[in-house]
Design a protein around this nucleic acid. Structure first.
Lengths: 228, 228
DNA sequence: TTTAAAATATGATATTTATCACTTTTTTAA
DNA sequence: TTAAAAAAGTGATAAATATCATATTTTAAA
């Protein structure tokens, strides 16, 4: 069992504010899990017994709408914490998390985190800041969803994915999303997403082969995102 | 100058977790402000020097989209705190707040709140819980914006306004929103909002006279919100 | 390796929503 | 009180998007 004190991942999230003793205690109660591509880390309505610290891989966090359609709310990756919200409000999760590729995550029991939140103001302040950023981003998404066209949202999403996940050797964006996933991020029908991707390809703004999408002309893509 | 220790409003928000001494200190540095209908409490991009505790009145909190359209993100009313997010992330506000009617608010300087957050775990935990709820709600709004039709969103919004603000003696929802405001909540063109309101009126699901809107058939409205 | 299932793609069409132009009503301020 | 401005309302039309049907390609499983 690897030790939290030596884990480099915690430097990327609020856990970096924990003291040595707190980390040792955490090491003793945390468990490590492998989640295969397509598997759920947790389901909508599930009561989480702790939070997850993502050591490797990416998952999509989504919510079912009353219309029976799935909306991807966020993508969570290496270094991120998952499940803080449900832990803090002490409610069943309103979201589900599905692995987009094979993942390695650490599970930290609720009691441990709550104790640290209570006792370590640096830690709780850091979690507060994280949540403040989440709220700010959520506000931006609300505005985009409400006011931008699907085409704008697609362009913006491609740019965001590019800057967040980078590219592989073939310059393709480093994340494996199906057309349906893309549609569920931007909030549109899968067919619409496919059509708009094809349009961008025809115009030589992007290219793709299967799920590997590359941006050829990011300034043009940016113009589209802004409504031109 | 009224005293925080005796103020009933704080029972409605996280400030209720402050100790007597903390409240006394707060009393000494807080200031009271009257904001007239239509005036801004703060503007987008403004650096807030503290938070606001709303004693009376309602304001709309909105954000401009890149398309030049305004999106109302939330309505803040008596008992709510305003500006916590910007304070915690120590950034300029990404939102603006405009009074919908005459308001009375208390302004509490940043340093005071930060000190309390640092020292009082009950208070910081309460703020964390608040923010967790805000995130959950924001997720719901994202899903609605992305997946529901304008008609569904209008129906849902009317029901939400009704349950949150109640009705006056004439059974009209107790909030003064222009048609444009309503459009900016649901994320549509003003004309579209007007048309859909007229439709609901024709079908005897709501009635209205000017800005006073009453729900006549809430079960039918609920069906519409759910997509029937 | 072959076959079934899933994902991607595309056309035709319907529905939803925005835009523009204009009228009427209400509100505000001189 | 009245004139001007703002808000509300409506029709015509264009643009965006969803839906349905179906074909093709890719992936996964027997």
């Amino acid at each position: 069992m690897s030790k939290c004190e030596q884990c480099i991942i915690r430097q990327f999230n609020s856990l970096k504010h924990l003291s040595r003793e707190e980390l040792v205690r955490m090491s003793n109660c945390k468990t490590s899990r492998i989640i295969k591509k397509g598997e759920a880390i947790f389901e909508e309505g599930e009561r989480l017994k702790g939070i997850f610290c993502v050591k490797d891989g990416i998952c999509k966090v989504s919510k079912m709408s009353e219309n029976g359609r799935n909306q991807i709310i966020s993508l969570v990756t290496k270094g991120d914490l998952l499940g803080e919200r449900s832990l803090i409000s002490d409610e069943a999760s309103n979201l589900k998390a599905i692995a987009l590729n094979d993942m390695e995550v650490c599970f930290i029991p609720k009691e441990e985190i709550l104790k640290d939140l209570e006792k370590n103001p640096n830690f709780s302040m850091s979690v507060l800041k994280d949540m403040a950023q989440t709220i700010k981003q959520a506000d931006n998404v609300i505005v985009d969803m409400a006011q931008k066209t699907v085409k704008q949202r697609l362009a913006e999403t491609l740019l965001n994915l590019h800057s967040r996940f980078g590219v592989n050797k073939e310059k393709a964006i480093n994340i494996n999303l199906s057309r349906e996933d893309i549609a569920n991020i931007i909030g549109t029908a899968t067919e619409s997403a496919i059509r708009l991707l094809s349009d961008l390809k025809k115009k030589n703004i992007i290219e793709f082969k299967g799920k590997d999408i590359s941006i050829l002309n990011s300034s043009e893509l940016d113009k589209i995102a802004q409504g031109f």
